[in-house]
Design a protein around this nucleic acid. Structure first.
Length: 381
RNA sequence: GUGGGCGUAGUCAAGUGGUUAAGACACAGGGUUGUGGCUCCUGCAUGCGUGGGUUCAAAUCCCAUCGUCCACC
């Protein structure tokens, strides 16, 4: 408790570890943010452009989600962070009173590869919207995230590609470390916004250690593991997680960036991860796939043409309570936005409830058994 | 009845003598992991209304026939 009070005075976001699983590294905790407490492990829906695509904030709230993600790079380009500040901050602008985590644009350094140039100073981007040139530096990113007013601000990093050779990854992570220090120095709103550091290091154990030692040394309110889920085999990602999590302190939240398939969420939790985000549930929803307790359902498949049952007989979401597979299929085939709305709603609900189940299983010391049961049903193994 | 046009995949069609018949939509699968995505990838006519013929070679030329549309009686 003493530690908690000390932390609260120091950081806008703090973490309370409530329980550790008796067999695995899974842990149950609470993330205290200026916009509410978040039960962990947690899955955070992604709303890149200040909107979780096809889903209204009140729906997300209704599912029990307390925190969503948004993106610095996108909001800086459009509509501009000054405009959002003028609107009263991102929470007010998008009508979301829960917590918000903003990604820094570090992932866009990776995903917009051909459109950017990296230097010690920062990254020069060519806007994917209109081709205009922009320079993002750690200081600029802090200015933007401060203007947005997110609860958790991710540091500006480089998410290195996979595969990447050792020398590249080492240089990259050391530059990312220097950028992190600059982020910390440029961040002046520490009592309202928490800056999280990002561990890089690719698939190299010693580099993961080097990265972790540095970022942990800066005593930040939370740490994330970046540079994973960038195309490497899942087994390799789990292998990295096996050791990477151990390099992070127990009293701070650990966030695995960009991971969201049901199996990876379980594997991440098992290795001690507290926070996840991913576009997967909303993206595959828009492309016609649902996550259900018995596996994924590609709604466009002909076998659902006359299937008047809900997506998931065990699901109590708005979509499953009111609509059939046949209807959703028809909406999808007819290019009606309704299919994106219903499937996105369902998928987010599914993952959020799945995380709820994971949390309960940790509390009751039956995480491993729960994982086994879930996999047997979901993947048929 | 006479004259003319047209018949190529489920649909709309390119192709007018020369290797395995464009393309689009539809249809059928698959992908998607800190969102450059109502998207991307793959498959889908052993056959060109039908039957003959000419030719080394025919969706393409000729004859017949069926269907269809238009014009005129």
């Amino acid at each position: 408790m003493k530690e908690r009070i000390k932390n609260e005075m120091k950081h806008a976001v703090t973490y309370t570890l409530k329980k550790k699983d008796n067999k695995t590294k899974a842990r149950r905790g609470v993330l205290h943010t200026p916009h509410g407490d978040i039960q962990t492990p947690v899955f955070m829906p992604v709303g890149t452009q200040a909107a979780v695509k096809a889903v209204k904030p009140e729906e997300i709230k209704g599912m029990g989600a307390g925190i969503i993600l948004s993106n610095t790079y996108h909001l800086y380009l459009r509509p501009g962070h000054e405009l959002i500040k003028e609107a009263g901050g991102l929470h007010k602008f998008m009508n979301w009173d829960g917590a918000i985590l903003t990604d820094s644009g570090g992932f866009q350094v990776f995903s917009l590869g051909p459109l950017r140039k990296i230097s010690e100073e920062g990254v020069e981007f060519r806007s994917h919207v209109d081709g205009s040139k922009h320079m993002l530096t750690p200081e600029k990113v802090m200015e933007i995230e401060n203007a947005l007013g997110s609860d958790i601000m991710m540091a500006f990093d480089e998410c290195a590609p996979y595969p990447a050779d050792r020398t590249y990854v080492k240089n990259s992570l050391e530059r990312t470390n220097r950028w992190l220090k600059r982020c910390k120095d440029a961040h002046h709103n520490t009592d309202h916004q928490a800056l999280f550091g990002i561990m890089q290091g690719g698939m190299y154990q010693d580099l993961r250690k080097e990265s972790a030692d540095y970022i942990v040394g800066l005593d930040l309110p939370g740490y994330s593991i970046g540079g994973l889920s960038v195309g490497e085999p899942k087994e390799l990602m789990y292998e990295v997680l096996d050791y990477a999590v151990d390099y992070l302190p127990e009293d701070k939240p650990r966030y695995l960036m960009g991971v969201g398939s049901p199996d990876a969420l379980f594997e991440g939790v098992e290795r001690g991860i507290d926070m996840f985000d991913c576009v997967l549930p909303t993206r595959i929803a828009r492309n016609g796939t649902a996550m259900t307790s018995t596996g994924s359902v590609a709604i466009k498949n002909a076998k659902y043409e006359r299937d008047f049952s809900p997506l998931d007989s065990e699901c109590d979401c708005y979509c499953c309570k009111n609509y059939s597979k046949a209807y959703i299929r028809h909406m999808y085939k007819a290019n009606e936005i309704m299919s994106s709305m219903l499937l996105s709603h369902h998928n987010l609900h599914f993952l959020i409830k799945m995380m709820e189940g994971i949390r309960t299983s940790i509390e009751e010391d039956r995480f491993s058994a729960h994982k086994k049961e879930f996999f047997a049903k979901y993947y048929g193994k």
